[in-house]
Structures are given as C-alpha cells and as structure tokens.
Design a protein around this nucleic acid. Sequence first.
DNA 1: AGCACGCCGACT
DNA 2: GTCGGCGTGCTC
Length: 572
Amino acid sequence: MGEECAEVVVRINHPRLDRVFHYRIPEGTEKPQPGSRVTVPFGPRTVEGWVIGYSEPDPEISLREIAGITDVEPDFTEELLELARWMSGYYLHPMGEILDKISPPPKPKRPIQVFASPPVSPKVQPHELVLTVEQQIALDKIKKSLLCRDHSRFLLYGVTGSGKTEVYLRAAEAALVAGRQVLYLVPEIGLTPQKKQIFQERFGEQVAVWHHRLAGREKYRTWEGVRNGKLRVLIGPRSAVFAPFCELGLIIIDEEHDSAYKQQEKPYYHARQVALWRARYNSAAIILGSATPSLESYASAAWGRMEVLSMKKRPAGRSLPVVNVVDLRQEPAGRLSFLSEYLIEQIRLRLERKEQVILFLNRRGFAPLIYCPVCGDVIKCKNCSISLIYHKQTKDLRCHYCNAVRPLPGSCPSCGSTKKLRFLGVGIQRVEKEIVNLLPEARVVRLDFDTTRRKGDFQRILGSFARREADILLGTQMVTKGHDFPGVTLVGVLNADLSLNLPDYRSAEHTFQLLKQVSGRAGRGATPGEVVVQTLNPNHYSIRTACLGGDEFFYREEAYRRRSLGYPPLAI
DNA sequence: AGCACGCCGACT
DNA sequence: GTCGGCGTGCTC
C-alpha cells in the first residue's frame, strides 16, 4: 500500500520539467496545504517549487522528502492553482513558470502598516444622477444576475459617451452590497489614477489599484488586502486579473476590444479569457464593455454565449458627432497633401469660436522615409531592415521597431553621394510644423511617444489641454484613449488609411475601432461635435461604416471575410 | 535549466 | 598517470 504524497511543480522553466514530481512528507511534519511554496531535493541540488496537490505515486520510483516549507501561508488559493493548471494546458506553457509569474509579491522586510479600520459594511456615497432608459435596463439585468449568482456574461455595447462608467459604478455598488468583491480591468496602467479617483469618490477606501510598477510595500499591502477581503474593489491592467480575491462577485473589462489585454510575452495569455475563466469559477457576473467590441466578443454574443446590453444614445443634451469624410484623391494638387482645405477651414472656425480641436495621425516622427536622390536607396535599420524615421527635435534617425538611434548621415551610406538626402511621407512632427506655420495664432500641444518620455509628461500635456491652455491637441494613438474634453468640438483624422494597410488580418477591425474611438472624443460637452476623416479609401467598408454608422454591417462583412479566409474567430 | 558522469587528447 | 574539453542523460 502506498501513501498520499505531495505533488510538486518545480520553479524551473524547462519543458522537460513541466510535470509533477512526488515527495514524501517528513515524519512529524504537517502536510503543507496545496499552493504552499517548498524547497525540495532535485537531483544533485535543492530547488524551489509548489505543492499543487496530493496523490499516490507510482510505487516503482523511490521518493525523497520535502526539504522545507517556505511559508505557513500558501502562495496560491485553490482557485489560482486551478487557474494556473488551466492556463498551462490552454496556452501550452510550463506550469512552473506560470506559478512563478503569478506568485504573490515578496513580504517587505520591515513590518507592514495594516489598514486602519476595515469598512464593516460597504460605504456608498449617495448619487443623484438620473440614468437613461438604456442604462437602467442594462443595470437591472446585471443586478438580477448578481443576486442569482448565475454567472452571466454581458457585452455592454455602448457608444462613446453613452455612460458606461455610470453602469459600471452602479453594478459595482450592487456587488458590494451583496458582500462580494469587484475587479475592474483597464487596458493600461496610465488609466488607473483617474478610474481610482472615480471609484473612490463613490466607495471610499475599500478601492485600490494594483499593477506591477507599484512599490514593494504598497504592492504587498494591496495583495494582502484583496486576499483577506479588506479591499473590495481592485482596479488594474491585465496583471490584476491574477489577484487573490476571496469573494469575487463582479468583473468589469473596460474597453474590452483593446489589444493591450493580451500579454505578448511569456507566459502568454489574454486577460479577457482569464477573466471569463475566473468569472465562471466564482459564479461571478462579468461585463465586457466597449463602443467597438472585438470581433471575438461580438461573435460570442451572436452565438449566445453572452448577453448584449446595448446603449445607443448619449444622455440628454449630448448628440453624437457628425462625421464628414474627405476624399484625399479629390483634393486639388496643393502644397499640403495631408491637410485638406475643408479640414483647415473647420480648424479655423473652431479657433475663432474659442473651441478645441484634436488632430490624430498614427505616425511618429517627422518623415517616415529617407532616401538618396542619386542611388534611390532608402535608409534602413541595421537590426530590423525597416526604414528609419527622421525625428526633427533630435535631428536623428530612429527605428520605431527596436528604438535604435543613429545620426542623420551627411552622405548616402549606400553610394557615398553627398547630395542632400530626401524625406518622403508625413509624420506627426511634420504636421505640427505645418500647423504652426499655417495657424500661428493657435496654441498647439503634441502628445506622442516622444513627448511623453519622462514620468508625468502624459498627465501634464493632457492636463494643460483640459484646462484649455492649448487649442489644438495633436497626437498619435495616445489621444484616442478614453479622455473626456468637453471643449473639443472638432476631431480630425489625418490619414485613416495608415492602420488599414498594415499587414494584419485584423487591420480592418482595428481601423474601424480606431475611427470610432477617436470620433468619440468630439462633442462631449454641450456643443455638438464634428469629425473629419481624411482618406484615400472612402468606400472601404470599415471606413464607411465607422463614419456613416451601421456597425452591424461592419461586423457582418468582417465576419464573412474572416470565415471565407479561414481567420479567427470564424475559422473552421 | 543545472549538474554529474563519461570518454578522449595534452600536459606535469 | 592526471586535467579538462563538452556530448549525454537525469531530476520524484
């Protein structure tokens, strides 16, 4: 007769060691709980690992004993162990590395400051805001599901400015009142401060933020708070999906279509997928919110795996912006190919009216292509073989793939000609220069990777624009993310084709999402907004539907194309 | 991944 | 007769 022995996964990232090793428990020692961190003899050395369960091993192999237990408290709850096991199979990744990456933060050396007095009952600030009919219907369904604990999945499909945040807040309130915890996921760490403020105004100190850049002490305190239930609402980016909740009742994934939810390095995972798993495990409700759902979620809803909560209207007094498409092919051959006469006219009008403008171009730098007029060679990155981009402020060439920097050469690196190298194409710095030339009275700020290198730059630039210290906000991708500027009445998309022509089967989806998201920045105040989209492809289905409406048409068309080409999520 | 074992060439 | 090159194989 054998005996129950500990199943141990070692903390070594190697495919050949991605399995369970059995160990005996030393005489007179208490069995470590599953999830406990242990040290075990392993061949000639001693290594760290985790007990993940107990079973009767093959009697043929001779067993060794566990050398020591690191901590009385297990590193993982039963749920997180189960989750790691699922991830290991689903993402085909060694369990040891997954456990390593989701293990709790180390205990600080000095004693930690304990939370003053835990809230006995959920404190909730009263709120007077009247919900729209659509908000009320959505909220009622979510609340009902929270009470039944029936693990409902909702796709909160609401246009930008329809008040999704208010629905999240009230759903969170319902979960708190029911005595359960809330996980609120956002795409980026940069979005956590504002969300924290919004949630804390209503729920007070039971709200916390978690992300990997927190300082050691704060990190540990938050982790502990979530584990022992003193913290009730956790806000964070994808890594927060591994927090050790004890009574998880509601998960909210804001901007669920955002690709930042996918971890692109080991261990690979998609936070949306992990969140769905945890919601099911905990019989928790889950809300995926977006104005532009991912094709995956849209399909999921169409297949009946999720319930759609649709919000098509903005609250009273706030209309959706008018979208005008400018066909760049019809522009008279003028000096500037990237600023149509119509757009310039509209910018002027807004400046006169003292309103604000956002201009969006998804390309950093001054000119994306530098070539020699003699031999025609384009200067490329030595590492990546993609063309280098000229940056005006630093007067150098930069690779946008590997971030390599080199000076602008005085002669052609290929043929040695000293004839002046030529710039081709338009980046955001070039637009800035032309706008300043064209509209010298306008106060312009630029928001991109290069102007936000130092800590606080991002908030500083956005803050000054929000205080109306600038008239025009010029930016890349960054300007599209969930900001609310009531003074903005015009959004210009300088080149809608950039994302459309990327070699990615999702480029049409990404273009559609980008256009709708950036359009949503217009007309958030009392004055109605306008969006001007410049494009060479005014008839492309993603541009047409994003500009003229008809989301269903876009999703149907895109689904049809994916299915015929065998691409996810409709591959057969 | 580590770490030991092992089996051949060049050195005291 | 010993030191050390890194190919092979194992880890409960």
